[in-house]
Design a protein around this nucleic acid. Structure first.
Lengths: 96, 96
DNA sequence: AATATTTGGTTTATATTATAAACTTGTTTA
DNA sequence: TAAACAAGTTTATAATATAAACCAAATATT
């Protein structure tokens, strides 16, 4: 009746990050930080967790001389997101 | 862009409990436990939190000689649930 | 030129949370 | 009457989210 919710995605910030990455080809740290309103520390930690899970990839490079961290969602991350949304709908579709 | 999610509802078990109570007039402890698959301890704690928040009410009585705990959602709980669902949709409606 | 500030993060610490394990009280059954 | 069961509650633990503190390099200021 109530399927388990992937704990990696059932987190406000991680869900926002993955949701954002679903809608764009890539996004860098600063942009994600702006869009989500997260603190750097929190974002850094959550990006690490998503990376460790294989849900996103991180590429570190430079924009001019400044460091730049670019994130992308992986096919596995897309699947996980879709699964999470599907599961969640069992919770929020009242009276069905 | 990503609205805050009510932390009281952003919990797998509490969300299941509230979701369940949205769909019925009332439900007792044992029934909720069956439907959610939760352990008694966990359910007891989460029911307390929802009660403290004013999202549900708890009525203790007896069915014959056995104790019975009946839960109902409050108007405030209904509002909170609706708000949570609305906020959540910003996260799961990709590409909109 | 030296110093201060900003950028782009990482690491570490803390406070909260979810969850399970252990316990309690009373009831039914063998 | 003793064992098992019902219906929970309380307490302990492990995981989590989050913020605070820190760091290195680049840029701006005096």
């Amino acid at each position: 009746m109530f399927p388990a919710l992937d704990p990696l995605l059932h987190s406000e910030l991680r869900l926002a990050v993955v949701s954002l990455l679903m809608s764009v080809d890539e996004a860098d740290f600063t942009y994600i930080k702006e869009q989500t309103g997260a603190t750097s520390g929190n974002l850094s930690v959550q990006i690490d967790k998503l990376t460790a899970a294989g849900y996103i990839t991180v590429e570190k490079g430079f924009k001019g001389k400044m460091p730049r961290t670019t994130c992308r969602i992986t096919p596995s991350g897309m699947e996980a997101f879709k699964g999470y949304v599907k599961a969640l709908k069992k919770y929020i579709a009242v009276g069905k």
